[in-house]
Computed example of a mutant assay.
Amino acid sequence: MGRYAHGFGVTADGRSFAFRTHRATLTLEIYRPDLATTVPAPEDIEAVAVAPVTDIDLDDERSVVALVRDLIPQATPVPTAQPREATTVRALLSRLAAVIDGM
């Protein structure tokens, strides 16, 4: 894993999550259960947990897995954001996905 540890998985109740380390912090994002796409958008985040990684060995996969497992129940709900206008990049990616799906 190392200092750039990152990954994803599914919680016990079926919601997907992703985690990443940046500097000395691990951030866990849990997504809403009814995702329509495989790549979640910022508005799909349902809960977040942040923890320092200064006390664990990032080269030991078991330590990282244990920290992520412990953070899942501690994740704090994120206030529901108002839907925002689609950005140009997101709109372009959405159209490309539609074209690929139509092939």
Rank of each mutant, 00 (worst) to 15 (best):
M1A: 13
M1G: 10
G2D: 09
R3D: 15
R3N: 14
R3G: 13
Y4Q: 15
V10N: 05
V10Q: 10
A12C: 02
G14S: 07
R15T: 00
R20G: 07
H22T: 07
R23Y: 08
A24D: 13
T25V: 09
L26F: 02
L26V: 00
T27R: 08
T27N: 04
E29W: 07
I30A: 00
Y31A: 03
Y31K: 06
R32S: 09
P40H: 11
P40Q: 11
A41K: 15
A41H: 12
D44I: 05
D44A: 08
D44K: 06
E46Y: 07
V48C: 08
A49Y: 03
A49C: 09
A49I: 03
A51P: 00
I56Y: 02
D57T: 01
D59M: 07
S63P: 03
V64I: 09
V65N: 13
V65C: 09
R69K: 11
R69L: 11
R69E: 14
R69H: 15
D70L: 10
L71I: 02
L71R: 04
I72M: 08
Q74I: 01
A75Y: 00
T76L: 13
T76H: 11
P77S: 04
A81R: 12
Q82C: 06
P83F: 06
R84P: 00
E85R: 13
E85A: 15
A86C: 09
T87P: 01
T88W: 12
V89W: 13
A91S: 14
L93V: 09
L93M: 12
S94L: 09
R95Y: 07
L96V: 09
L96W: 10
A97F: 02
A97T: 07
A98L: 11
V99W: 12
I100C: 08
I100D: 10
D101G: 12
G102R: 10
G102L: 06
